[in-house]
Amino acid sequence: MSIINSEIKPFKTTAFHNGNFVEVTNETLKGKWAVVFFYPADFTFVCPTELGDMADLYPEFQKLGVEIYSVSTDTHFTHKAWHDTSDTIGKIKYPMLGDPTQQISRNFGVLIEEAGLADRGTFVIDPEGRIQIVEINAGGVGRDASELLRKVKAAQYVAAHPGEVCPAKWKEGDATLAPSLDLVGKI
């Protein structure tokens, strides 16, 4: 069963964000575009490269009205310790959600039960709290924040322009398509 267009399930957790511990719930994500960015664990190898890449592009996501939420099954205390000891993680300005009960990872279908860790799952959520984009990578395959930014722009464009779709490799300003009988077999 696809989770595309499904509403995110309820959750409540504590995040490390800009030097503070803050509560984040499923309701926090509603009202604006959001990216929920799961990774296996703090103090690892591929994970800091991904979170650092996301930190570098965070201002671009913010310009689009998108909030980023990173999530691992570590605690908010562990996130703070990592933030305080790693130059790469120290530049993060987005909320780092703790998921020690594994509820959020389970809700999004990315929990590796036998390991108690999350897969590398990326979820783009619209302002109504519905999942619009899902990407899940194997543990050894890092993600690219610039490609995610492109996909978010496409999702926002399609949401704002009913009746239009974005073709492969679409970038902001490129032509879109208006699906119709006239296009069938002509692309």
Rank of each mutant, 00 (worst) to 15 (best):
K151S: 07
S180K: 00
T13I: 11
Q132I: 00
I125T: 07
L29W: 10
I136S: 11
G52D: 06
G98Q: 04
L183E: 03
L97A: 06
Q132N: 01
V141K: 00
Q156V: 05
F37M: 14
E135M: 05
F43Q: 06
Q102R: 14
P59M: 07
T49I: 00
Q132K: 15
A15Y: 04
M1S: 15
A160E: 14
N5V: 10
A118Q: 03
S105T: 04
G31R: 01
V158P: 08
L64Y: 11
S72Y: 02
V141L: 02
F61Y: 14
A118D: 01
E50P: 05
Q156D: 10
K91N: 14
I133N: 11
G98L: 04
Q156P: 09
I68M: 13
T44D: 07
S180E: 01
G52V: 00
G19A: 11
Q62G: 04
A138G: 15
L64N: 14
F108M: 10
T75S: 15
T44A: 09
Q103H: 04
W170F: 00
Q102Y: 09
G98Y: 08
P95G: 07
I68R: 09
E67H: 08
I8W: 08
Y94S: 14
C47E: 08
D87Q: 05
H161N: 15
E113W: 01
M1Q: 12
P167E: 05
T28D: 05
P167I: 05
V35W: 04
V184M: 15
Q102M: 12
C166D: 05
L29K: 13
I4K: 13
K12M: 02
A41S: 15
H83D: 10
N18Q: 15
P40I: 03
D99H: 02
F21W: 10
G121P: 13
I68K: 12
S105V: 03
E164Y: 10
L97R: 09
A154S: 11
F61H: 12
I187P: 00
K186D: 00
I133E: 10
T101L: 07
K63R: 11
D87R: 02
V184D: 11
F38E: 06
M1A: 13
E7S: 14
T13Q: 11
H83I: 07
Y94F: 15
L149E: 02
D144L: 06
Y157F: 15
T14A: 08
K93A: 13
P48Q: 10
R120G: 07
G163V: 04
A15L: 06
I89C: 10
D87V: 02
A41F: 12
T25R: 07
V184H: 09
W170V: 00
T73L: 03
S180P: 01
G173Y: 03
G19H: 13
K80C: 05
S180V: 00
T13S: 15
K186V: 00
C47A: 11
G163P: 06
S105E: 03
A178H: 11
N107G: 03
M54V: 11
K91Q: 14
I104H: 01
M1D: 13
V22K: 10
Q103I: 05
M1N: 10
P167C: 03
V46H: 01
N20R: 12
